[in-house]
Design a protein around this nucleic acid. Structure first.
Lengths: 203, 203, 203, 203
DNA sequence: TATGAATGAGAATTCATTCAT
DNA sequence: AATGAATGAATTCTCATTCAT
């Protein structure tokens, strides 16, 4: 679960207030004064802790990234065979998307921040690193599975890992646009297909 | 291929100029005057054809959507077994991503336009429809494959279709952040894994 | 006389409106919107012609500098002996100060602009050049007078020129603070003393 | 010399810290917190001693004024003929300018403070008084010289005094803009010219 | 129809000042 | 007395949009 810190300092208070307002209205439509009001402080106070609106936005990005990665890593760390780990990683990710549609919509803003904002390169770099890390995480599981004989050895682990990570991001996007989507169920079918093979006859 | 229309009217000229500038600088950082200059017309002329910057942006969205869907539909329409159709659809999509990284980065802006802009609901609705259509397209192939016996019947076609579409979107995101990614190779590995099954022993 | 241009373009209109407002309220206390209102245009229009408040301020500086230098140069250009030229230059300068106390008060702002503003070096450079030019102008007259035998040859022309120019600036400062000062009369006494010598017995 | 007080109270400590920061960055660009930091006290402490930034600025003005006037008065107080007193007064003033270019640059800020600041009239009044006093000082020397027969009696003492004082102020301005200027040498030439007469034949 | 000069709503940001501790 | 976290008034500047030509 993504939960508020127990005893947040004022900086963290602002990050969480910002997350709330940004995730509701989007980056552009959010005014700094909205965040200040939500946090229950004066407008100037925001600038005591963050040099700019974008700096605060980036802090929100880092906070959310940390929260999510922590859960995924914990899940994958549990000892199990590679198949089960992949399935569990997919399931927990879908669960997060399902529970936090609002927060996940911020992804769209984070991504867009890499397009023409003053922090363009900062967000681009952070996202590149973030995705490289997730791909690595998944690829390692796959390679271990291949080494241990659970998974087919004739498949490029990095390529498949990239697409698994992609699938989860893309799923969150579709869920953002369509409340009716059930990410958990979709991911479950996907895991079954991917692990067992869609084709009746393996190729 | 995504190509300029042969004899564009001035409206189409503006759409294509806008696509170029938007894809280079992002929606927010693009000024209407930039687009006018790129199109070689006066700033006021833009408003003869589009009521607002966002309206023009939406027109770009529709144009690109049309271009891409056309290619995907043509690919899927070719008679083949379901497996080959899926593989071909994945390949052609990856190819488009690969060839048009710039255009694809606009996705990030389109998605973000669903967050707090004046056209919020217009983009949201359009994206919901767009994704529903792609999911349908893929799900139909899967269902046909199941009916014809090429694909396993015990799998939820809709769920898997959702994730396949997701994977392609997510892949484009990662390619935007990381020039070193090769979407075509990654998709190929993914197709092999998905169709044949990652596990050595089918489950 | 310092007069408004006969057919000012909008840029010049703004410069003159700005000169009026700046000279009345000082740089800091002047709001860009005040200038726009005085010029009878919208706030945004100011930014069509000047990139910033300081850029406009600099344009005012250049305009006033041009106006004044023109008069001084015209005066000095009239054929006369060096003594008369110096006397005339002093007189015309005092006359300008006397007639345009308001405009001259802008000097105080121009000078202060060289202290910590974004345009610090631009104003510093411009003032350095401006004063070097005036010193040169006066020094040339003195040297000519020395060559022609009208003025004592044992005196450093550059040093005296610097102080003559200084005296006029300092006089404008005192006039700004004290309406009762009569620059014309003061300069007349000064010219007599300087040219004839304060001491009863020449040294 | 302008030196720090031997055992400064905290108020004086702040005045001197402020003088340092103001003279370095100018009034506008100086933040109260900079002064506090330079003085080694908390920001709030400044307000225990001064009601506002401008009040502190005014205190700096008074402090510097006092320091400088003291030196000039001491110089003039030395018994000598009027000619020598004038020459000495000019020399000592040029010496101060030369040694304290930084401090003197504050003049530009003091003057500008008379333009649109909340303390406008306070600075204006103080400067008017200050200059009246200096003019009086110089005029008295001249009048004494005239009475004693050292100086020509047909010259308006007040007018000449005003320009002598002006010249020193203006000189400081030019020195601020041009490091290459040597105020001491310039003033020496000026003194010679003024006392002995620029013209070969006294008029 | 095409234009681009003019507009002004709107938001980020700064920093002097306050005041609870 | 000393502090510095908190405040919000105030102002610059941007740029989508309008409309007279």
């Amino acid at each position: 679960m993504i939960v508020a810190t127990a005893v947040p300092g004022k900086r963290q208070l602002l990050v969480e207030a910002a997350a709330e307002v940004f995730s509701t209205h989007g980056f552009t439509a959010t005014r700094v004064s909205d965040i200040a009001a939500t946090a229950g402080v004066g407008k100037g106070t925001v600038y005591e802790y963050f040099a700019s609106k974008e700096e605060l936005f980036f802090a929100v990005f880092e906070w959310i990234d940390g929260q999510i990665r922590q859960q995924v890593e914990l899940t994958i760390a549990r000892p199990a065979c590679a198949c089960d780990q992949l399935r569990a990683a997919l399931a927990v990710s879908a669960g997060i998307v399902s529970e936090h549609r609002g927060l996940f919509s911020m992804n769209l803003d984070f991504w867009a921040a890499s397009r023409g904002s003053a922090f363009e390169s900062r967000f681009t770099d952070a996202c590149r690193t973030l995705y490289a890390r997730y791909r690595q995480l998944v690829a390692d599981v796959i390679r271990r599975g291949q080494a241990e004989g659970d998974l087919r050895g004739d498949i490029d682990a990095a390529g498949v890992a990239a697409l698994i990570v992609s699938a989860l991001d893309g799923l969150a996007v579709q869920c953002w646009f369509d409340d009716a989507m059930d990410p958990v169920a979709a991911v479950d079918s996907f895991a079954t297909a991917l692990l067992g093979g869609l084709c009746r006859e393996p190729r």
